[in-house]
Design a protein around this nucleic acid. Structure first.
Length: 504
RNA sequence: GGCGCAUUCGUCUAGGGGCCUAGGACGCCGCCCUCUCACGGCGGUAACACGGGUUCAAAUCCCGUAUGCGCUACCA
């Protein structure tokens, strides 16, 4: 159910042509060289939302032309994480490594059109050219020689050298991007080098493959990271040389770490995989991701997937980079967990504990304990990993954390009185459920004339051994009378040991 | 060095010339909620990078400066 309040607030740019643009074709094109990054995940989300909003198609393409760094494991991981996030694709996944014929054909067409030329310069010559340009405060753009004589070429071939193919950037000239987010961005051709489209072994480079694929797959809108913006004119040039029309572009700002540098591993959880392991559910992750660089209005901070689909509009994406704040994710996660239906929460919790191997390590009753304890922890957690800190005591015999024991040992006499008082009331209770327990303990508290903390804290430690735990009344109820009484006695006995020889 | 982009509270942002003595959220600080941890409630702290224009009026438009980031490969 959408909030009628927020729908009453009009977005700045009314959705017009996009709303029914069922021809919209967007794509997400990661290179499988690692796990899916937070930045990549957000790009994927934006694309997915744009497609779903318009009723268009979302295409997945793996850019694995770098055979050195691309791995099947990484590819599998990316697909897995996409599914975890709920981002389903309509076409693909396509692999560039399987489309070699298409690229070779495109390269041939570029050759026929005279748009590319063979460049024989060696790596050293190239380095020298760039170094010289830099020294002269010029743009370090490479323009290969195009006037090699037949003899020279024959000589190099004899040496075993093979040329790369460079795109002949038309001079003078400029390429203009009408970016949906950044507005008009102009690149002077003088600043664009004659980039390589085919390596000396004949394989395509990124700029060629991406351009060809976007054309061939009918992509009409490219939503990608701003780090690609300087590649865009190159790809547009290639597309036009092939007789195609470039798509609409929307370059989204980068996601930064807290040091304002592009987010990477050293910033902690930088991949979706890590967020998953850190106990976050997909929904809050999506919510946090979408709000990096995008907002619907000045107030709304939580969205269901349906609301996002309805409201998302790339044109409202911000131009400036955003710092990824884990704390905010945590807050969203906590809110989401608390808002869950109790049964649903229990399902998620058990599933998580099972998936992480937590239950397997804790005996046959573990799943049952986990499910029954879910209501005791739902309000207290902001991520699933916090479960053990609160409810870990349920799975083991009574043992005291140092800090908790110190609390008791600090004043053994008082501890014995409080715990003994609690035990006296609890062991005679017939109905060992939450309300009677609470009444009995509250009454005893008054009888002994102690403050709530003075009286209740020892009770907590007596049964949980922890100073941070689930609530006392519900914990006692869950434990059941026999187990609770046993724990009380055990604590008392241990305290008595410490008391002998003490100061009565 | 070259080119490009960006710049509102610590963070994410609202803001498209007067509605802005700049709004919201998170954080942080304080108080409340007679069980810890949390939750929740209430209150507070905190920003238009700087300098010039344009205009009756600028956070909003223009120019410059500074700073930051991105790209600058036969990586993607």
């Amino acid at each position: 159910m959408a909030r009628s309040l927020s729908t009453a607030i009009l977005p700045r740019v009314p959705n017009t042509e996009d709303d029914l643009n069922t021809d919209l074709r967007v794509r997400f094109a990661p290179s499988p060289t690692g796990s899916l990054h937070v930045g990549g995940a957000r790009t994927a989300l934006f694309n997915w939302l744009a497609a779903r909003h318009a009723g268009g198609k979302f295409i997945l393409r793996l850019e694995d032309t770098d055979r050195e760094r691309s791995t099947p494991e990484s590819e599998a991981e990316i697909l897995r994480v996409m599914q975890w996030l709920g981002l389903d694709w309509d076409e693909g996944p396509f692999r560039q490594s399987e489309r070699d014929d298409i690229y070779r054909d495109a390269i041939d067409r570029l050759k026929d059109a005279g748009a590319v030329y063979a460049a024989w310069e060696s790596a050293e010559e190239l380095d020298a050219m760039r170094a010289e340009a830099r020294a002269n405060k010029q743009a370090p753009v490479v323009r290969g020689r195009r006037d090699w004589s037949d003899d020279e070429i024959a000589a190099m071939k004899a040496e075993g050298r093979t040329p790369v193919w460079r795109f002949a950037v038309p001079l003078p000239g400029e390429t203009v991007i009408e970016d949906m987010i950044r507005g008009t961005v102009t690149f002077d051709h003088a600043q664009i080098e004659d980039f390589v489209v085919a390596r000396s072994d004949g394989t395509p480079t990124y700029n060629l493959a991406a351009a060809v694929d976007d054309l061939e797959m009918g992509i009409n809108r490219v939503i990608r990271g701003e780090d690609h913006i300087s590649n865009t004119p190159k790809q547009m040039l290639v597309m036009r040389a092939l007789g195609g029309t470039p798509p609409q572009y929307a370059h989204v700002p980068l996601i930064l770490g807290t040091d304002k540098k592009r987010l990477s591993k050293r910033h902690g959880a930088a991949s979706v995989e890590e967020l998953e392991a850190d106990g976050f559910l997909p929904q809050p992750v999506r919510n946090a991701l979408v709000l990096l660089g995008w907002s619907y209005d000045d107030k709304t901070t939580t969205f269901t997937m349906d609301e996002l689909i309805e409201k998302f509009d790339v044109r409202r994406v911000s131009k400036s980079p955003a710092v990824f704040d884990m704390k905010k994710l945590e807050v969203m996660s906590g809110r989401y967990l608390r808002a869950l239906d109790p049964d649903q929460f229990a399902d998620e919790l058990v599933q998580y504990l099972d998936a992480t191997g937590y239950l397997a390590d804790r005996g046959p009753d573990a799943a049952d304990i986990a499910r029954r304890s879910a209501p005791l922890v739902q309000r207290k957690m902001s991520r699933l990993t916090e479960y053990d800190r609160l409810a870990g005591w349920l799975y083991r015999p009574l043992e005291f954390e140092d800090e908790a024991w110190e609390f008791l040992a600090n004043d053994i006499k008082h501890a014995i009185q409080a715990i003994g008082g609690g035990l006296g009331r609890l062991e005679v209770l017939d109905d060992f459920s939450m309300e009677p327990i609470k009444e009995a303990l509250s009454d005893q508290l008054h009888v002994q004339g102690l403050s709530a903390r003075e009286f209740l804290e020892p009770q907590r430690i007596a049964i949980t051994g922890q100073s941070i735990s689930t609530g006392i009344y519900e914990s006692l109820e869950m434990l059941g009378k026999d187990a609770a009484v046993a724990r009380y006695r055990q604590t008392l006995a241990k305290l008595a040991e410490g008391w002998t020889g003490g100061d009565a």
